[in-house]
Design a protein around this nucleic acid. Structure first.
Length: 823
RNA sequence: GCGAGAGUGGCGGAACAGGCAGACGCGCUGGAUUUAGGAUCCAGUGGCUUCAAGCCGUGCGGGUUCAAAUCCCGCCUCUCGCACCA
């Protein structure tokens, strides 16, 4: 029973049920209709959603509801990214099985989310830890495997001792584990990788075909991929009787190469020092370096370390012999792991040369004569470079590369900072990697028909030792699918980012059983038109998802190369100036706030606090303010619903003003939502209209209202309620019904406006004297300069300012201002 | 260090293409209503100035312009990202 007061809980429950009963948000593939796909990053089910989630979903819901009312079929799904460590830690600490823990959390979270009344098609829910889903995560792994995009190799990897697993490069932040904050160490392990580096160029290139993405996200991805163009050059090493290739972006500085550097772990180092007195020293040097954590490297002020390893390399241009050193700042995985050191023009080489007293030879002169820095890394004119003297660096680069190319000693080359994606995790709660090792057949992919490789239920979660899967006899020991002989399963599971790299495809086709998705579904719905989430995923998730999409495109499973046309990165919700977190104890529970104020209040507060891309501050007063506004809104509309008609005159002038205001408000709200995502100004426009309305009520209270006024006000109220609907869907649906709306507002067409009706006949025009506002006059729209000048000369204030002055100049902006410049 | 972004009342924030700075809201002040509080309604609310008139005012300093929060140059502060990537 809904009373005449604004009873948020009754109203919200009523419409939530109604939308569900009438399947308002359920959509089907239908190529006849225009589609729009709105997606919010799905959550890890940690329990109750927090305010950051709510903000995310509310933004998405406004967009979804807005487009729905534009006549689009809107796909707006929700699911759970439900593999991951917290579930496993719960098992270790409280003895609850990860599956049980996760499903409990999901139910709880789903309940709260449903309570928010967001326009999800819940039938399409995706849960990544269900075999029905991870079966296809494994299937996708196999596609990558068959196309040489998934491979296993030994490598020096990031290890988080606290999580007892390896981490991808992307998951190490300032030398700390992105998840738990412990210091990351290095370990040499045999691990599975995805060959994302093969897609470095298209990940970079295809950024051009994206729609609206935040510039900073693109920049971050660009930096992460880190493309640099240069050359590979061969330096002959007499002791090996062959060449070592270096990568450099500055072939024009080759005459300044005074020593040669190798990464300490470079395998050629061993060949060079074999049987020499350096063997022992190098071994202990390597040991010392590997103990040095990333943190120490950064905090020690960049003290470089290295040592001479006893042999020489030959500069292919000068024929000069230069000593070979190893240095800790040379990264084996980048470029070729070997560098020609040019201390005069590279800061790091310079530091190294100074520390170990190596010669520094200047070969580039700055264009700017004044500049005589010790280490000049810019472009300039070549000197001390034989026949190349006098050439600018850019030309020199090209000539040197072509000289080397002709002699087969080098070529132009591109390097990327991006590394292959390490996907193995030594943990239980993830999708098992579908690989089998047979004593006689070797490494065998699990046949597609045998998928999913199910996680065993009964495993030992006690901490320490190998991962729970490795300890499970029944899981590990199987017979080879090829020869039937003895075999063991891979016991690593996949990084959860693999699961989230394709979930947006599954939403399109969630009921498909024999494959991850139907092509027709995906072709209809994809790409996601608007993706919304936190900027913290700017690199990791967004790049992995882009990578997966590109692989699927190349393998002809999908017909598009980019998954997300537009991306919106929302700001955080803070409290007391800091990020809300359990450890700080400054969290606000959405569940409780919704209980006392209602969903619509929370939505209005969040959206009104500022533009959504900015961080916002949670404020109790702000919530109350939003609540008060909803009450004010309710009362005003109800006053119109209950308006009695009297036999009185109509205030035509006020009515016209209101009419104009109505069209302006529609135009503003429409634009603010559609083009700018600035819901705060959309709400303030609605508030202004409401204030207009209240002013008018005062007139009506005095004189009573005519039938004409009542019918106009109903129309006005309807458009206001209609505009408010994507922002506060429950209250607006209720008021819509009370105003006589027959169909659901959620399915009612979005209001349109008439530009003609927005125009005023009288405009207020600003009169400036010497650029300062001195007066305002009211003139008819489109008044001429002469007319305005004449009118302003009759204005007392203007006359005072002009008294005894000469008019030197006039600037006239029609319907806006007249600036009179006097001497 | 490199790169990107941002600095506007007591606060969150408006000002779409150089043209009325401070919309809208919060807070605060006064008033009405009320037994009282809350809620509600009305009025006010950038600073200086005794009122009026006026002057100053968008981080700081300069510039362009009839006119600058907005454009240009220099500086300061903050936030974020990258940080031995040859």
């Amino acid at each position: 029973m809904v009373t005449d007061n604004y009873e948020h809980s009754q109203i919200e429950a009523k419409w939530r049920d109604r939308w569900e009963r009438e399947k308002v948000f359920e959509v089907e593939t239908d190529p006849e209709r225009r589609k729009y796909y709105v997606l919010e990053m799905f959550p890890y089910p940690s329990g109750d959603p927090h305010m950051g989630h709510v903000k995310n979903y509310v933004i998405g819901d406004v967009v979804a509801r807005f487009f729905m009312r534009q006549g689009f079929q809107v796909l707006h799904p929700m699911g759970f990214d439900s593999f991951g460590l917290p579930a496993e830690n719960a098992a270790i600490q409280h003895g609850i099985h990860p599956s049980v823990w996760t499903h409990e959390k999901i139910s709880r979270m789903r309940e709260v989310l449903k309570h928010l009344g967001i326009s999800y098609d819940w039938r399409r829910e995706v849960i990544t830890c269900e075999p029905e889903y991870y079966r296809f995560t494994q299937w996708l792994f196999l596609q990558l495997y068959h196309n040489d995009l998934a491979y296993k190799r030994e490598g020096n990897v990031n290890w988080c001792p606290s999580c007892a697993t390896v981490l991808a490069n992307e998951q190490v932040v300032d030398g700390m584990c992105e998840r738990c904050g412990s210091e990351v160490t290095k370990k040499t392990l045999n691990q599975w990788y995805f060959r994302i580096t093969q897609y470095a160029e298209s990940l970079l290139e295809d950024m051009n075909m994206l729609g609206k993405w935040p510039e900073r996200v693109l920049t971050m991805q660009r930096n992460w991929i880190g493309k640099s163009e240069g050359a590979q050059i061969q330096f002959f090493v007499p002791v090996l009787n062959r060449s070592i290739t270096v990568f450099t972006t500055r072939p024009d500085t080759i005459f300044g190469a005074t020593f040669f550097l190798l990464a300490p772990e470079h395998p050629l180092v061993d060949e060079i020092i074999a049987g020499t007195s350096y063997e022992k020293k190098v071994r202990s040097f390597r040991k010392r370096i590997s103990r040095k954590s990333e943190i120490e490297r950064i905090t020690e002020g960049g003290e470089v370390e290295g040592m001479y390893i006893g042999k020489e390399a030959v500069n292919p241009l000068t024929g000069e012999s230069i000593p070979i050193w190893i240095a800790d700042y040379i990264i084996y995985e980048y470029g070729t792991g070997a560098v020609m050191a040019v201390p005069a023009h590279d800061e790091r080489d310079c530091r190294f040369a100074k520390r170990f007293n190596l010669p520094i030879r200047e070969v580039i002169k700055s264009h700017d004569e004044e500049k005589t820095e010790e280490c000049f890394a810019g472009e300039g004119i070549m000197i001390n470079s034989g026949q190349y003297n006098g050439l600018p660096s850019s030309k020199g680069k090209k000539s040197i590369i072509s000289f080397l190319e002709q002699r087969g000693l080098g070529k132009s080359s591109v390097s990327y900072r991006l590394r292959d994606w390490l996907i193995s995790r030594q943990r239980y709660w993830g999708a098992p990697i579908p690989i089998i090792y047979c004593d006689s057949c070797g490494e065998i992919p699990v046949p597609e028909n045998d998928l999913p490789v199910l996680l065993p239920q009964e495993v030992d979660f006690s901490p320490g030792g190998p991962s729970p899967l490795a300890r499970s006899e029944s899981f590990t020991h199987i017979s080879c699918p090829v020869c039937g002989g003895r075999a063991i399963r891979e016991t690593d599971t996949m990084d959860t980012f693999v699961c989230s790299s394709w979930y947006f495809l599954r939403y399109c086709s969630p009921w498909t059983e024999d494959k991850p998705f139907h092509r027709a579904d995906v072709d209809y719905w994809m790409p996601v038109d608007q993706y919304i989430g936190g900027v913290e995923h700017a690199i990791l998730h967004l790049m992995y998802a882009r990578f997966f999409t590109k692989v699927l495109y190349d393998l002809d499973f999908v017909g598009f190369r980019e998954p997300f046309t537009n991306l919106f990165a929302q700001g955080m919700v803070n409290k007391d100036g800091a990020k809300m977190s359990k450890s700080r104890g400054n969290t606000v529970s959405p569940r409780e706030i919704v209980e006392s104020f209602g969903v619509d209040t929370v939505r209005v507060f969040i959206l009104f606090a500022g533009p959504p891309e900015l961080d916002m501050e949670w404020s109790e007063r702000g919530v109350e303010g939003a609540y008060r506004f909803l009450n004010r809104f309710w009362r005003a509309i109800m006053q119109i619903v209950d308006l009695e008609v009297h036999d009185v005159f109509t205030d035509e002038k006020r009515l016209m003003e209101l009419e104009r205001d109505m069209h302006r408000t529609i135009a503003k709200v429409d634009r603010d939502i559609r083009e700018r995502f600035h819901f705060n100004t959309a709400i303030s426009a609605i508030m202004e209209s409401l204030n207009q309305l209240n002013d008018y009520f005062r007139v009506l209270n005095e004189k009573g209202s005519s039938a004409e006024e009542r019918s106009f006000l109903i129309r006005y109220a309807r458009s206001l309620v209609s505009l408010f609907n994507p922002i506060a869907p429950h209250i607006s649906e209720e008021l819509w019904e009370r105003l006589g709306g027959e169909e659901l507002l959620a399915q009612h067409p979005w209001p349109s406006f008439d530009r003609e009706k927005m125009i005023e006949d009288q405009v207020e025009l600003v009169i400036q004297i010497n650029g300062k506002v001195r007066s305002r006059i009211s003139v008819t729209r489109g008044a001429s300069e002469d007319h305005v000048l004449e009118a302003s000369l009759r204005d007392e204030k203007v006359c005072n300012w002009l008294d005894g002055k000469q008019i030197a100049k006039k600037i006239f902006v029609p319907d806006k201002l007249l600036n009179i410049v006097v001497k």
